[in-house]
Write a protein that binds this DNA or RNA. Sequence first.
DNA 1: TATATTTTGTTTCTTTTTCAACAATATGAA
DNA 2: TTCATATTGTTGAAAAAGAAACAAAATATA
Lengths: 156, 156
Amino acid sequence: MDKEEQVIISFRDLYNKIAWVNRLKLEDSLRNYTFSEVGCIEYIGDNADSNVTKLAEYLYMTRGALSKMTKKLIEKGLIESYQKPDNKKEIYFRLTEQGQVIYNVHEEMHKKFIDRDKVVFEHITAEQFDNILGFMKKYDRHLDAELQKMEIEMKS
Amino acid sequence: MDKEEQVIISFRDLYNKIAWVNRLKLEDSLRNYTFSEVGCIEYIGDNADSNVTKLAEYLYMTRGALSKMTKKLIEKGLIESYQKPDNKKEIYFRLTEQGQVIYNVHEEMHKKFIDRDKVVFEHITAEQFDNILGFMKKYDRHLDAELQKMEIEMKS
DNA sequence: TATATTTTGTTTCTTTTTCAACAATATGAA
DNA sequence: TTCATATTGTTGAAAAAGAAACAAAATATA
């Protein structure tokens, strides 16, 4: 296995472990909400005028799934929907006060995760940080190009 | 947002995008199998004496889910189960010939992904590679310690 | 403008996954 | 050994999520 492959594999395994640990913690402190629901609340709290389509893209789920999820969150009183006078099609969401409480709990947890993992970054220099961030940006752009290729293939 | 947080967020977003792109490609070339099923076949192909419990840990799913999934894969003729003379409880899996075909397709796809992303690693020095791998290893160990802490908390 | 195409959100049906209880077996402790 | 505890795999019911078809509205095209 060459270095590239090693990095990619380690990258995947590490991400999965991080996600797993954080998910356990998160589901422990927000017992009545699923991981997806918390993600949904997080996105709505961070993005004005979020709708089903954007949520689906962010969470890598179908619009159908998010249509149901937002409906449930409205019933639970965590979010509310609204529309704009010039658009009768799109339906946007915002947090209610109760939803904001959940959002804040999530935020706190998120900060705790960052804090918990600070030690790992201890001996990393500013230059190394920039290297890593630069690398990830490059990878991200590369994938965007790949996705565009795939879209073109799909159409033909 | 400080550098640590930036790295973690970018890391998450990048991973999700990689997983998304590769999943689309994979589901396109293995149309009759779900992503989880392919992961299951991959693990069984790579690990001797794999059982429901190990599969569940690897895929971050429940044992129940894998009990059903392996049952289905047996019905489809992709894997087969066996036991050892000295253990009447544990049930192990191995690939059938047909399962090996799926495994090989997955392997090829995996190689293609690595190859597709080679350009991103072009200007990375051997030293940088070691830095990155070292960092990920450190992070991984850190999380293992965290998981152990959580286990101890659970018991009390 | 008129019409075709695309986008958006919802719904129904089906599949996947989880949850939680369970029996069978293995392991550990007295 | 014997008995308590832990592990393993399975099951049925419920929840979560995907797939596909659809209507309504927005956008593009002619």
